[in-house]
Design a protein around this nucleic acid. Structure first.
Lengths: 134, 134
DNA sequence: AGCTATCAGTATCAAATAGATACCGTCTTT
DNA sequence: AAAGACGGTATCTATTTGATACTGATAGCT
């Protein structure tokens, strides 16, 4: 594994390099809606209006932006059916599907550990309140 | 696994619920700097100024915000040493350390697949340019 | 005594991003 | 003729992110 000579972390150099693959993917996952959309598309093509319902709070503008960027990255395809009313299906590519497994791992971690995170938040916020009130 | 009766996705209901654990963690990972910081802290405590150097482009304000939120979530501890000049160490908690494995999986995926993503981007952008220029 | 440096941040302001809300064009159904 | 389905776009506002400058405590040097 390729390392940077001034590296003191033991991590591969690329995680710390702004142009590295890992940062690209963490940005991708980091997108507020992208990973959710990928998971909603897991099983079958889904049309725009269905996505809106499923990812209930997202606005159409932001959903469009999310889908366009997933399409640009080759994770999702967009298929327009010449019908009226229009029908546009979004579907995972093979590349997109390959992301499902690491995402599932993360979700599994979440299911086990998010309660601890929420508890930590409550404890932290209580401590902050105490500090303010004296 | 608990499902929603109106669910048409096959996903566990919680991924689509705004208050669900999975969303909490995807927000957490989604934070632009948080997952990077967690990985930088993987092996040992690191002080503030070191973090700044390692995650080179982050501004101090944003790094502070990131660290505070990781601390609030119980993923990182902050230890102030009464010295001059001051020394503040950040270190992963057990909970934080447990996140390293799923993150490593994601990084592994990234290393294999980011080239394909970058290629897709180039192809997409070229196609856009063509469409504009006629 | 005064000057400079180290460290861990804040304060202030500008820029980029996300979100709310309203609207559009095409066709079908009523 | 009116209303509705669908897949968006346009416009404006609110929130988040980022750039830059600055602070306070102390140590070491001159």
């Amino acid at each position: 594994m390729d390392t940077n000579p001034s590296d003191t972390t033991g991590l591969p150099a690329n995680v710390l390099d702004p142009d590295c693959p890992s940062r690209v993917i963490f940005q991708r996952i980091g997108d507020k809606w992208a990973s959710l959309v990928v998971q909603v598309l897991a099983d079958r093509p889904v049309r725009f209006s269905e996505l809106r319902k499923m990812v209930s709070v997202v606005t159409p503008k932001v959903l469009t932006q999310t889908l366009r960027s997933l399409e640009r990255d080759g994770l999702v395809t967009r298929t327009v059916h010449a019908q009226v009313p229009p029908r546009v299906d979004y579907e995972l590519t093979d590349l997109g599907r390959s992301l499902l497994e690491p995402l599932a791992q993360l979700r599994k971690w979440a299911e086990g550990n998010v309660p601890a995170i929420l508890a930590a938040r409550d404890a932290y916020d209580d401590a902050q309140d105490e500090a303010l009130l004296g």
